[in-house]
Design a protein around this nucleic acid. Structure first.
Length: 194
DNA sequence: CGGCCGATCCACT
DNA sequence: GTGGATCGGCCGA
């Protein structure tokens, strides 16, 4: 057991942390169902200066307030009325940095995840896509604000290292409205494990 | 209070 | 390749 400590989330470099999250394990335990896997895709949202962020310009609302929390909590919101998208809040209080988790490779509790997604077997793209990620792990927007040092949602470092050459950086997805910030290479994808 | 729309996914053609 | 689902949040009146 090597749960990631709180200090990990409190640092300033949200883009760097996004890359570091690749290869980390994420687990959830709801209804006593342990599910989890390896994070393979992330996107950084760099706070008030980032036009793609919900907190752009320092906008604080009931929803975005979670992003202004101290790093180490979940920011989950409803997208298109259907999907819960899961983010990890980073940096100190009042600095609304967040990292969207866009994909993972399932390793634990696969039967539970198949049940949640109404599938009978794993496909190649199972768990790839932020909506599917949350659905597989049972994460719901009502979980927004949950502490990642608790026993419902947490991350672990199991020593898996992703080689820099197996990380692809691209522009983020679905944020064309963000003008020049839409082009920033803030999306990170693992092209090959180990 | 009404209207618009989104950090998406899937079924269907 | 494409359009529909689906609803909370946000903004303007």
């Amino acid at each position: 057991m090597s749960k990631i400590n709180k200090e990990f989330y409190l640092r300033d470099d949200v883009v760097g942390i996004s890359k570091e999250l690749l290869g980390k394990y994420i687990f959830t335990k709801f209804d006593n169902k342990l599910t989890g896997g390896i994070i393979t895709e992330t996107e950084a949202y760099e706070g008030i200066s980032d036009k793609a962020s919900h907190a752009y310009g320092g906008r604080r609302t009931k929803r975005t307030e979670t992003m202004f929390s101290k790093g180490g909590v979940a920011y989950v919101y409803l997208c298109y009325g259907v999907h819960s998208l899961f983010n990890i809040v980073t940096n100190k209080k009042d600095v609304p940095h967040a990292i969207l988790i866009r994909g993972f490779i399932p390793t634990d509790g696969i039967d539970f995840m198949l049940e949640r997604t109404r599938k009978t077997k794993l496909s190649k793209d199972f768990g790839i896509g932020p909506g599917k990620f949350s659905k597989a792990l049972g994460i719901h927007f009502s979980h927004s604000g949950m502490d990642l040092s608790g026993n419902k949602i947490w991350l672990e470092d199991r020593g898996l290292k992703i080689d820099e050459k197996n990380i692809i950086a691209t522009k983020r997805i679905g944020i064309d409205y963000a003008e020049e910030d839409a082009l920033l290479p803030y999306r990170f994808v693992v092209s090959k494990l180990k």
